[in-house]
Amino acid sequence: MKTVRRLLYRDILSSFALVMAGFLGLFFFVDFIDDLDRFQRLGLGVGLALWSCALKLPGRFYELMPIAVLIGTIFSLARLAQSSEFTILRTGGLGPQRALGLLSTLALGFAALAFVMGDYVNPWADRQAQLLKSRASGGVTNAAGAWMKDRDGDYSYAVHVGRAKANGVMEEVLILEFDPKGAMATRLTAKEATVDPGGRWQLQNVRLMQWSRAPTPLGRLTGRTTDAPNPDSPQDKLADNPTVRELLLPQYSWQSQLPAGVVSAAVQPTWNMSTLELYRYTRHLSSQEQSSQQPEIQFWRKAFYPFACMVMVALALPFAYLHFRAGGISVKVFGGIMLGISFVVLNAVAGHLGMLRDWTPWLVASVPSLLYLGISMAAFWWLVRFR
C-alpha cells in the first residue's frame, strides 16, 4: 500500500504543481504589465513592480487552489485510467474504499495548505503589498472610510475613520459621544490617531466640542484624557452659543472598548482578513447591533474554503473509473473542469444572493460544497456499482 500511495500522491502532486505554476506564471505576467506603467510614472522602478507582483502570488495561489487541485487531480487520474495503470491497481487490491481513503488523506493535506495560505501567508504578503502601495499613493492604503460603534455603560459612541495608512496611523478621525438619553454630549475630531493593543486611542491635533447638558462637566469622553485641559487656557474658546465649549488640544488619549484587531478589521477589506479576525469582527458588529451579514458570509466562506479543496478531489475521483478507450479523454476532462468552474461560480452567486435575501450565512457558504460533494459521491458510487 505504501507503493500505491507513493505512486498516486507523487503523480497528483506533480500535476497540481504543474497546473499551479502555469496559472501563477500567467497571472504574474498580467499583474506585471498592469503595474509596470504605474510604478514607472511614479519613478519607483521595475524592481519594485516585480516585488509588488511577487507579493500578490500568495493571494493568487489561494484563489486558484481549488481549480488547480481539480485540474491536476483529474489530469492525473484520467491519465492513469487511460494507460490502464489504475485498472492494474484495482486488480492488485485497490478497492473503492481504499482509493477513497487514500485520496481523502491527500485532500486533507490540500485543505491544510489552503488554510495556512489563507490565514497566514496571504495576510502577511498583503500587508507587505499595502506598505509598498502606500509608497506609491502618499501613504494611504484605504480611502473608503469606516464607521464603528462603541459602548461604555450608558454612553454610546459612533467612531468614523476617514483614511488608514499602512503603518497603522488613521487620519480624519471623528468620535461622537451620546449620553444615556441619546443626545450628543461630545464631538471630537482629530487629524491622526493610533490604537495600542489595549484599545487606547492616541489622537493628535484634536478639536473637541462639549455640550453643557452632559451630566458631567466635560462628559465621559473628555474625562478619559490623560492631560486634562485647563478651562482658563487661551485655547478654551467659548462658542457663540454659551452652552457649547470648544477645546483645541495637541494630544489626547481615549480608552475605548474597541480592540485594536476590530479597528484594524474595520479599515481594511474583508477578503484579506484571517478567519480569526473575521470572527472577532462579526462578533463585535453583532454585539453593537450593526449589520454583520456581509462579514459573516465572508467568515463562513473562508472557514469552508479548505473544504472546497476536498470537494475538488472528490469530483476528480470518478474519472479514475471511466473507460477512456470508449471516448476521447480530452472531452471528459474538459467536462470535469467545467463542472469545477460551475462550483466556483455557484459559490460566488450564493454569496451575493445570501446578502440580498438575508439568508443564514453558514448555509450560504456550506450548501454549494455539500451539493457538489453529494454529486461526486453519487457519481463515484454509480461508476463502481454499474460500470
Score class of each variant (00 low, 15 high):
residue 109 G to R: 00
residue 33 I to G: 01
residue 240 D to M: 08
residue 200 R to L: 14
residue 351 G to F: 00
residue 130 Q to W: 04
residue 182 G to S: 05
residue 71 I to Y: 04
residue 4 V to I: 13
residue 140 V to P: 06
residue 209 M to A: 14
residue 141 T to L: 14
residue 225 T to D: 13
residue 299 F to M: 13
residue 9 Y to R: 12
residue 360 T to A: 12
residue 122 N to D: 05
residue 225 T to P: 06
residue 234 P to Q: 10
residue 339 L to K: 06
residue 323 H to W: 09
residue 241 N to C: 07
residue 329 I to C: 05
residue 11 D to T: 15
residue 8 L to G: 07
residue 54 A to R: 04
residue 85 E to A: 00
residue 334 F to D: 00
residue 111 A to Q: 02
residue 189 T to S: 11
residue 148 M to N: 07
residue 203 L to Y: 05
residue 145 G to I: 02
residue 269 P to D: 05
residue 101 G to F: 09
residue 72 G to V: 02
residue 179 D to I: 03
residue 98 R to Y: 02
residue 130 Q to H: 12
residue 153 G to F: 03
residue 140 V to C: 13
residue 168 G to C: 06
residue 304 F to N: 02
residue 291 S to N: 07
residue 206 V to W: 02
residue 334 F to M: 09
residue 308 A to I: 07
residue 115 F to L: 06
residue 245 R to M: 10
residue 140 V to A: 14
residue 156 S to K: 11
residue 244 V to K: 02
residue 228 A to Q: 12
residue 386 F to Q: 11
residue 253 S to P: 10
residue 84 S to Q: 01
residue 132 L to W: 01
residue 106 L to C: 10
residue 374 G to C: 04
residue 204 Q to I: 06
residue 298 Q to E: 11
residue 152 D to P: 09
residue 35 D to M: 04
residue 205 N to F: 04
residue 338 M to D: 01
residue 165 K to C: 15
residue 148 M to C: 11
residue 304 F to K: 05
residue 350 A to L: 11
residue 264 S to M: 13
residue 116 V to S: 14
residue 102 L to T: 12
residue 76 S to Q: 05
residue 237 K to I: 14
residue 100 L to E: 03
residue 190 A to W: 00
residue 50 L to H: 05
residue 289 E to P: 00
residue 4 V to E: 00
residue 327 G to Q: 03
residue 215 P to S: 15
residue 263 V to Y: 00
residue 15 S to D: 02
residue 56 K to C: 11
residue 357 R to C: 15
residue 342 S to D: 04
residue 237 K to Y: 15
residue 115 F to V: 10
residue 69 V to Y: 03
residue 337 I to D: 00
residue 120 Y to L: 14
residue 344 V to W: 06
residue 135 R to F: 09
residue 354 G to R: 06
residue 372 Y to V: 00
residue 118 G to C: 02
residue 252 Y to C: 07
residue 138 G to S: 13
residue 326 A to C: 12
residue 297 I to H: 01
residue 343 F to E: 00
residue 245 R to G: 02
residue 124 W to V: 13
residue 193 A to W: 01
residue 60 R to Q: 15
residue 381 W to K: 05
residue 356 L to Y: 14
residue 249 L to Y: 01
residue 295 P to K: 05
residue 243 T to W: 08
residue 196 D to P: 06
residue 342 S to V: 07
residue 296 E to H: 11
residue 130 Q to V: 07
residue 104 S to L: 14
residue 217 P to H: 03
residue 349 V to F: 09
residue 219 G to N: 03
residue 14 S to I: 04
residue 236 D to P: 14
residue 200 R to Y: 15
residue 102 L to H: 13
residue 99 A to F: 15
residue 1 M to A: 12
residue 22 G to M: 09
residue 285 L to W: 07
residue 95 G to E: 01
residue 214 A to W: 01
residue 86 F to R: 00
residue 42 L to E: 04
residue 371 L to N: 03
residue 150 D to M: 12
residue 18 L to C: 03
residue 22 G to T: 01
residue 210 Q to N: 11
residue 17 A to C: 09
residue 117 M to G: 04
residue 336 G to Q: 01
residue 52 S to T: 08
residue 363 L to T: 12
